[in-house]
Design a binder for these strands. Sequence first.
DNA 1: ACAAATCCGAATATCGAGCC
DNA 2: GGCTCGATATTCGGATTTGT
Length: 318
Amino acid sequence: MKYIILDLEWNQSGIPEESVKDLTFEIVEVGAVKLNEDRVMIDEFSCLVKPQVYSKMHHITRKLIHLRMEELEKGQPFTKVADDFLNWCGKDYMFGTWGPLDLSELQNNLRYYDMKPLSNGPIAFFDVQKLFSIAFEDGKSRKSLEYAVDFLKIEKDIPFHRAFSDAYYTAKVFARIDEKLANSHVSYDTFRAPKDEDHEVWVDFDKYSKFISRGFETKQELLYNKRVMNTKCYKCGRSTFKRIRWFSPNHKNYYYVGFCPRHGYVKSKVRVRKDCNDLFYCVKTMKKIDKETFRTLHEKYVKYKDNKKKQIAKAKGK
DNA sequence: ACAAATCCGAATATCGAGCC
DNA sequence: GGCTCGATATTCGGATTTGT
């Protein structure tokens, strides 16, 4: 299995009213490096895209990516670049990117030009920005690529914010991350949610499990779904005893804690999302937690309840 | 029986830090 | 500037409870 470390540069309309709804961001450059199984670079891809939609560079983008429209004129149309790129990728590979955005943008541009989709469901990939945070920081922070390069003392021999160079640096950072750690924290691009139950994603690692549901027309349908709200222990399948009932501090994330006789506290977290067809789907993670984590989560639950009460009291006071 | 008070779920707003 | 994501705060309206 090979790795394709990808980076895109894109542009947008300078005038909000003239923004094209189905293509808010137009890809203007594709850069990538191919790594072998040992994560050693074996090939490069770099191509400018001649814009078809936005004829001016957004002023912020212009400062950022060091590209002028005159240069982009030398590029090829997106359909040609995308074909070349996907042929260059070959078969049996996995994508890696800095941050979670690039694969969605790539797919949105493919869709805009009615090209064959990369996939009709989620795509597994390595989010190196996330992996860097898990490996070297708190796992939650998201740092810039340059920060990571500095942190790892990687030589800065080419400028940042061009597609190829950022792909190159991302690959360098990726190579420094423990392989086991990377493999147990695979990300999924969900531009398209799984189309049916048979294509739903279930991944089981030792420390946690992940489930990506199919898309539903409404949020209610999603939240009443058995597989979504199932709280059985992901390790042994036993039913758990309720310790904290389902609650949501923001109506996007839902939490639950059950107690498994064999594995202890098991936390479920359901994140509600919408895919490119406006279908509601969820990413659910289940994780074994210790007593201490349980206590802090319980505190969060109590605090959330208290806040609600306070807010109501405050509203009443007015 | 009826209206007011209260509770609660859900949408919306805001903030900061990333991506281009 | 537009967008995403996580976290927190505010607002709205319907359902339930309470008071008379």
